[in-house]
Design a binder for these strands. Structure first.
Length: 435
RNA sequence: GGAGGCGUGGUGUAGUGGCCUAACAUGCGGCCCUGUCACGGCCGAGACCGCGGGUUCGAAUCCCGUCGCCUCCGCCA
């Protein structure tokens, strides 16, 4: 084939270091502006956009948008071009041209297509720099999670997604055929991360998908989502977990701010700096919501409007809001939730709300085997069916607790996306199984 | 699972009983253009208005059904 393809590739963002040199760029054709015997081709690679100047015969060549091309030429400083440099093309090769019409334009600042089209043609829509930025930032968030927890001596674990039973009841499980047995997709790594704590790792985390068979159809639910899970042994109380999450989110946000400045600028987002996150017992939050906004809440909990209102309450002048809700009643928390020391009807658990949406549930867990058996039984469940889980508590288990952060929800709230699907590369919802 | 809303060229919208032989923007095709960067100019193709039925002299527009999508609620991360 051509000489162009074999040449060493230089990326768009590196061009500043090559002024005066001849380089080869490879990427997608973002846009071409024809001016007769002169044309400007904007090439896009994973690092960004760069303008290539085509003259004479090259300018006359038909080139479709989104073709994969190699362009070689001399790098010149050009104050008028984006990035301050452009490439004076001397060679152009189309490596792969699209063989179908593009369903919508992605070379505009904003993609003007409905969510359904955007998701139907995900490979195309994610090429748009603004949409692309969402996933670059999401990657940094996950990276920050791993980085911070590793710095705190957490071990990354990997637990099965095909399981025999659910963690908190069976109604929202996806059943699957496992040879001659009935199995389910894991709705949470809850039992396994506790078992890994008990296996002597003390501090563990996992980044993995979880599956919920809920037939909900909302802008904040997925049937498969990424759970940022952690579990920590030898805690004093759930306060240790909220302290940990505060430091964790501070690090994750700082990493995004430091590493994703161009992406944030593209989305017009400023990452909030996290100082202290207020901790409000649910009952108190309900009272505040009633007093300040005249709204009643469901028993022992907040509804979505209440979550938005309490965030509004703690937000100073419309700034991004983070708030822990604590002391949830026992009857609305799972059987493994540790009762609050001062009131056995409440739990040592918490949720974290971010800009009006629940992004974390966590808490201290029951570590005493007998207490756990009683808790299971008190909910009308059969302790026998939890025997493999219960074994870890019979072999010596430290006080412990943990939490789970919904990655897509965190991403969506941070970036102000209105639908969680926008923060999901290939979402699985009530009806969508493809792409 | 429940409630509400929407469905018009490839895409995004306007049109809410006759002026619709369906408009605008963008994209697409052709021609012109050597400094554009939302490039510009001229020309052209492209939708029987989701689907089925009904009301009416007349339906994109009103009614019923159906399918799809969106939003909200329950529930959750």
């Amino acid at each position: 084939m051509s000489a162009l393809i074999s040449q060493v590739r230089v990326l768009a963002a590196q061009l500043g270091a090559y002024v005066g040199e001849v380089v080869t760029l490879k990427g997608w054709v973002h846009n071409v502006r024809h001016m007769g015997n002169l044309a400007f081709l904007v090439l896009r690679d994973r690092t960004g956009l760069v303008q290539c100047v085509l003259e004479g015969e090259l300018a006359g060549r038909p080139i479709e948008n989104e073709s994969v091309v190699a362009v070689s030429g001399k790098v010149v400083a050009a104050l008028k071009a984006l990035g301050g440099v452009e490439v004076q093309a001397t060679g152009l090769e189309v490596i792969s041209a699209p063989s179908m019409p593009l369903p919508f334009e992605i070379n505009k600042k904003e993609v003007k297509a409905g969510l359904e089209s955007v998701l139907d043609h995900r490979v195309l829509s994610m090429r748009n720099p603004q949409i692309h930025a969402v996933f670059t930032i999401q990657s940094a968030l996950a990276g920050g999670f791993r980085e911070y927890l590793s710095s705190q001596n957490f071990t990354q674990i990997f637990t099965p997604k095909i399981v025999a039973t659910g963690t908190e009841g069976g109604s929202n499980l996806f059943p699957i055929e496992y040879f001659e047995q009935r199995a389910y997709l894991a709705q949470s790594p809850q039992f396994y991360k506790q078992m890994m704590v008990g296996a002597g790792f003390e501090r563990v985390f996992e980044i993995a998908p979880v599956y919920r068979a809920e037939e909900h159809n909302t802008s904040r639910h997925l049937n498969e989502y990424l759970s940022l899970d952690l579990e920590m042994g030898f805690i004093q109380s759930e306060e240790d977990l909220m302290d940990l999450e505060t430091g964790l989110l501070r690090h994750m946000f700082a990493k995004v701010a430091a590493e994703c400045a161009p992406e944030l600028a593209l989305l017009g987002v400023t990452v909030p700096e996290i100082a202290a996150i207020p901790r409000i017992p649910v009952a108190e939050a309900q009272a505040i919501i009633e007093r300040k906004y005249g709204k009643l809440s469901p028993k022992g909990d907040l509804d979505p409007e209440g979550e938005r209102l309490i965030c509004q309450y703690v937000s100073e002048g419309g700034k991004p809001a983070l708030v822990f809700m604590t002391r949830y009643p026992r009857e609305i928390r799972p059987m493994y939730a540790m009762p609050a020391p001062e009131n056995p009807n409440l739990t040592a658990s918490f949720d974290l709300l971010f800009n009006g949406l629940e992004i974390t549930t966590g808490g201290q867990r029951i570590h005493n085997a007998q207490m756990l058996v009683e808790s299971i039984a008190s909910r009308g469940l059969d302790p026998e069916s939890f025997s493999t889980y219960l074994e870890v508590f019979r072999l010596g288990m430290p006080p412990h607790g943990g939490m789970a952060i919904g990655l897509e929800r965190l991403t969506a709230r941070l970036l102000g996306l209105s639908n969680i699907r926008e923060a999901t590369a290939f979402p699985r919802d009530r009806t969508r199984l493809t792409p």
